[in-house]
């Protein structure tokens, strides 16, 4: 029962390519949505549960992607080993960064994470010798899982969906444990949390690292799946989009974050039709949702539905 939502998602993910074979929307958009769900679910652990904003999460996404790209193309490492190395590097950087940065609160934290994101992006553009500069790195080999090469859209769809479901499962488990409650306690009142024996600094540091690892994992998948990385995929706008996904879906809800990620992916696909109007509509929608549904689409709508349902039952 606890995982009913997860099983439903798995069933839908499995059914889609069967119902719509060789469909661009299922495979290509599905992969892109899946990667974003991993990112959003990871960021939600930090933002939604622990209440710490990060406007620089694209940096960890990018570091994961570039680690895979550089190690496989320049040093001919096997893909899985490169991914593991990327996770290690990102985990260590996040851990080093966490203590000083998470002492900050509110807008100061927003500024610091934003600055971190921009610094990493500038390095991606400028450190041409390693990163290929603004042109990026091409020729990244696909993932290879024990001899099974992930080289078709359908295979990628399968791998990304499995990874996405894994991320959602991990997030649900964390949220529904003493670790998750301790994080929500930090969000609710740091004073009280400390008084109950929670080392708040340690709790925030650890979830920051976990959140960064989710992003790096998504980044590595992204690099191998695209075969190409460039700094544009990891700039400030991407960081902002990640925060938007979490807030759009509804904070402190794993499925909310996932819905936010899917909604934003579909929005991008849909707005492509409008070309020049895309930015304008995107901005207007962001404002509208935040003003009229401040709890987010998923959480706000599900609460509204519950209220309606109760009203209907009372009425009937």
């Amino acid at each position: 029962m606890r995982l009913a939502g997860l099983y439903a998602c798995a069933a839908v993910a499995a059914a889609l390519p069967i119902l719509f074979p060789d469909n661009y929307f299922v495979t290509v958009v599905g992969i892109s949505a899946g990667i974003r769900v991993i990112l959003a679910v990871g960021l939600n652990l930090l933002m939604g549960y622990a209440g710490q904003i990060s406007l620089g999460h694209a940096a960890f996404f990018g570091m994961g992607a570039y680690a895979s790209a550089i190690l496989t193309t320049r040093h001919a490492w096997p893909a899985l080993l490169a991914m593991a190395a990327g996770l290690a590097v990102v985990g260590a950087s996040a851990w080093l960064l966490a203590r000083p940065i998470l002492r900050l609160r509110g807008h100061y934290l927003a500024m610091a994470t934003l600055g971190f994101g921009i610094i990493v992006h500038v390095v991606m553009v400028q450190a041409t010798r390693w990163t290929g500069g603004p042109d990026g790195l091409a020729g990244i080999p696909p993932l290879n899982l024990l001899g099974w090469s992930v080289d078709t859209d359908l295979r990628w769809y399968g791998v990304v969906m499995a990874a996405t479901l894994l991320a959602v499962w991990l997030s649900l488990n964390l949220a529904d444990s003493q670790v998750g409650r301790a994080l929500r306690a930090v969000h609710g009142s740091e004073f009280a949390a400390r008084m109950l024996g929670i080392d708040t600094g340690r709790a925030k540091t650890r979830i920051f690292v976990v959140s960064a690892l989710f992003a790096a994992f998504a980044g590595s998948l992204f690099a191998h799946q695209q075969g190409f990385v460039s700094p544009d995929s990891f700039n400030l706008i991407v960081s902002v989009e990640l925060v938007t996904m979490v807030v759009l879906g509804g904070m402190a809800s794993t499925f909310g974050a996932a819905c936010g990620a899917i909604a934003l992916t579909l929005l991008h696909e849909g707005l492509v039709v409008f070309e020049d109007y895309e930015m304008l509509i995107h901005g207007a929608l962001l404002m509208a949702v935040m003003i009229f549904l401040p709890q987010g689409l998923f959480v706000g709508l599900s609460q509204a539905t519950r209220r309606l349902w109760r009203a209907a039952r009372r009425g009937g």
Partner: peptide, 29 residues
Amino acid sequence: QLFFNMTVLENVMVGCHLRAKTGLLAAAL
């Protein structure tokens, strides 16, 4: 300084934190 974002039971469960031994990894899995 209640945790308004939780139920009464969850609030008190946070109170049991010192007796909990769950590690991050164990909880995630």
